[in-house]
């Protein structure tokens, strides 16, 4: 494998949030293990889909990669450098190539700034620090260019976010992420808040931009059909760990992990004939709280195939079972 193609490598990334008690003298009484040791790589030009239910740590992963949180442990190696250990000004430079798009097109845009200012903000930040050489005229020209690229008329440059619809706002978010010509975009549920007809517009836009600017995406969503459509590879997360990673086609055709199987069978398909014939694997119970350290498989409590001894007392490692398909499950490997 041409491994100089690796753009981002995440090694044993952990993000634990403290649970504190007491008013004056805060005492740490435990931690929420939002991300509990994950490894994966993203190669240039691919779209890595990250899917899982709410609370499984998808968004935390993206934020920890972007260093919006300081990870508890692990490495985030972006273009050969570990972002976790970089000093602040170096990190700022590296982050030019790593931008984010957020889920909520209402909450992620400052209501007091115009669309133009919002899109220009990354440029001004870097220009003020003399990290890029752009005059105010250059920036304005670039903003107009970006607006046209994402399908917004440049006459909207002085409008405020509340004057735009949800889909248009998400386009502003996309333009802002593109402003610095990044290599990697972390898209955190960019279409989840949008209506179906608008969702497909934004998905198409993201794909067109990827082709044009040779972008790499880490695409987070809880909608499996959306992930299937846009991703080349998919990682399935459960309770802070990765249960399975595989090529998109492989994962959807031949899922191996019991959780992936259940997840796929639970997705409703917009076709009544197919729906009537389907056999659902209905999982019992809810996702457990991530506040405890686990000594066995994370999926043990809900797994229909759980094996009493093996799965309860050993944590299955993520192992390559088939070509390009890694699974963390003892159905496919034995504990050592």
């Amino acid at each position: 494998m041409a491994d100089n193609n690796i753009l981002l490598e995440v090694k044993n990334l952990k993000m634990h949030f403290p649970i504190e008690e007491g008013l004056l003298f805060k005492k740490r009484v435990g931690s929420i293990r939002a991300v509990d040791g994950i490894d994966f790589v993203i190669r240039s030009g691919e779209t890595m889909g990250l899917v899982g239910e709410s609370g499984c740590g998808k968004s935390t992963t993206a934020r920890a990669i972007a260093q919006l949180y300081t990870p508890t442990a692990g490495e985030v190696i972006f273009k050969g450098r570990d972002l976790c250990t970089l000093p602040k000004n170096e990190l700022l430079k590296e982050r030019m190539d790593l931008q984010m798009i957020f889920q909520d097109p209402y909450g992620s845009l400052n209501p007091r700034m115009t669309a133009g200012d919002i899109i220009a903000e990354p440029l001004t930040v870097y220009a003020n620090r003399k990290l890029i050489d752009m005059s105010r005229q250059d920036i304005r020209k670039r903003v107009e260019e970006l607006m046209e690229k994402v399908g917004l008329s440049r006459f909207f440059i002085n409008r405020y976010p509340h004057e735009f619809s949800g889909g248009q706002r998400q386009r502003i978010g996309v333009a802002r992420a593109l402003a610095l010509n990044p290599k990697l975009i972390l898209a955190d549920e960019p279409v989840s808040a949008l209506d179906v007809s608008i969702q497909s517009q934004i998905l198409n836009l993201l794909q067109d931009l990827q082709d044009e600017f040779k972008l790499t995406y880490l695409f987070i969503a809880h909608d499996l059909a959306v992930i299937e459509h846009i991703s080349t590879r998919v990682a399935v997360m459960y309770l802070g760990i990765i249960a399975e990673i595989a090529d998109s086609t492989t994962l959807y055709k031949k899922p191996l992990h019991p959780y992936t199987k259940a997840l796929l069978s639970a997705v409703p398909i917009p076709d009544p004939v197919v729906e009537r014939k389907r056999q659902r694997i209905i999982l019992e119970g809810d996702v457990p709280s991530p506040d405890q350290e686990r000594s066995g498989c994370y999926f043990y409590d809900r797994c229909p195939n759980a094996m009493a001894d093996k799965c309860k007392n050993n944590i299955p490692p993520l192992k390559e079972v088939e070509k390009n398909q890694q699974v963390a499950c003892f159905l496919y490997s034995d504990p050592e």
Binding site: S200, Q201, T249
Partner: peptide
């Protein structure tokens, strides 16, 4: 109906989309 990506009929490439806003 056409603009929803479907799990059982995967297809890469562009999705159908209704232009414009509600």
């Amino acid at each position: 109906i056409k603009s929803v990506p479907r799990l059982d009929k995967p297809h890469k490439g562009r999705l159908f989309s209704i232009e414009g806003q509600p």
